[in-house]
Design a protein around this nucleic acid. Structure first.
Lengths: 125, 125
DNA sequence: TGTTGTTACTTGCGTATCGCAAGTAATAGA
DNA sequence: TCTATTACTTGCGATACGCAAGTAACAACA
């Protein structure tokens, strides 16, 4: 039998360490990225929708995060119309997998930050 | 019937929003804080132990994060000897609750970052 | 008595990132 | 022609990060 796990010695070089938590933090570890994921999970898709959340993300930060999330394979950017070209953002399967992480955070958060509450999903016909 | 949830209008003022995820990110949302929590969960207690992780945290960053974690009630600092005074850090119950969040992150991380692996707990007699 | 070692930090300082405000490109519609 | 909308980008001052070095309070030698 030969190797496995990504054809061996393939992606076994890590920025900080081989710890899964560390590697997750290297892509999601800041004050905004996970909030963008949250909004996408809630059904938001367009730039202005993502801009409209109560945390008031700056537009350059949002653009930067979307670019990084796309590069990380968590999000795909696709045009929903031409003339003028307009784009929307969708979670990939990998990105969808973060629902469980968000769920754990919400559970802990609701328990320790009284008064917090999750936002409703956006209605989309 | 009167109010509830922290005697109303008590702690219902949030930095960015009333979303639990947002409030969790306001205390844990950076590249280092959750790694300190991880180390404490693994059984590390002392400054030099926390310094010794492979991610090589800078000492000023570690001191800052421990201070903030203590202020947030996730960690307690206690002396384990006098003359000279030496301190160790322990997770509070609130901090221990983050094991589930770390678990979710590890599960997702191991699935999407091939080659990553969790560190063994430190042996402590 | 002097020197080295350990632990738990703090301080300086250059660099990187953040975030507010404003600007831009490509249209649609009045 | 003028105003709106959408999806961004650019400038720039402020904040945060991180490397290196320094400090305080001892213990243990030699």
């Amino acid at each position: 039998m030969t190797d496995d796990l990504e054809t061996m010695d393939d992606k076994l070089t890590f920025e900080r360490s081989c710890c899964p938590i560390t590697n997750v933090l290297d892509t999601l570890g800041d004050k905004w990225t996970l909030l963008v994921i949250r909004d996408l999970v809630l059904g938001k898709r367009r730039y202005q929708e993502l801009m409209s959340s109560p945390e008031r993300i700056a537009s350059n930060i949002l653009a930067d995060r979307l670019k990084k999330l796309e590069a990380a394979g968590l999000v795909i950017r696709q045009a929903y119309q031409q003339k003028p070209a307009r784009y929307e953002y969708l979670l990939t399967e990998k990105g969808e997998g973060l629902r469980l992480v968000l769920g754990a955070i919400i559970t802990w958060g609701q328990e320790h930050y009284p008064g917090t509450m999750v936002f409703p999903a956006v209605e989309r016909r």
